[in-house]
Amino acid sequence: MTQAVQRRLFLVVALLVAGGALGVIAMGGIGENLVYFWTPAQLHQNSDKAVGATIRLGGVVQAGTVDWQQGDQLLTFTVGEQTVDTATPVVVKAKGAPPQMFREGIGVVVEGTMRKDGVFAADKVMVKHSNEYRAPTEGVDPESLYATVEEL
């Protein structure tokens, strides 16, 4: 086998391996291993696995549920699938002030564990930014800004 033939054989094999690997991953072959967070509904489905284990929950901070106790540095809020979610909201309790962008209606990912009483005890509250970059409008109504970050 000449070196040229050998090299081109390597090329074909490398391309096949690369294409195959990409295909497997794209078809969801390792999808289960790359679950970064559970939605509230997924959390309820996996409630047996959620208690005690370190997990992440992702969703939207429900309107009217944010309670911040400055003295105790205790933050309580409810995470749902959408802005108004009556079906599957999860109550989250966290210690310490959240990131500056935290507010009602914003996407969040919280890291922690599910307590036996059904409250999610978060060690870490992370805020999701949407892919929107908007110039601020003069005299803007803060409520209208929430609309841009609703979709998670």
């Binding site: 794209a26 679950v35 939605t39 992702g58 999701k128």
Partner: peptide, 12 residues
């Protein structure tokens, strides 16, 4: 696009 992420989706 394929997985839940904290990172935002592709901007346009």
């Amino acid at each position: 696009k394929w997985w839940n992420s904290l990172h935002q989706p592709v901007s346009s």
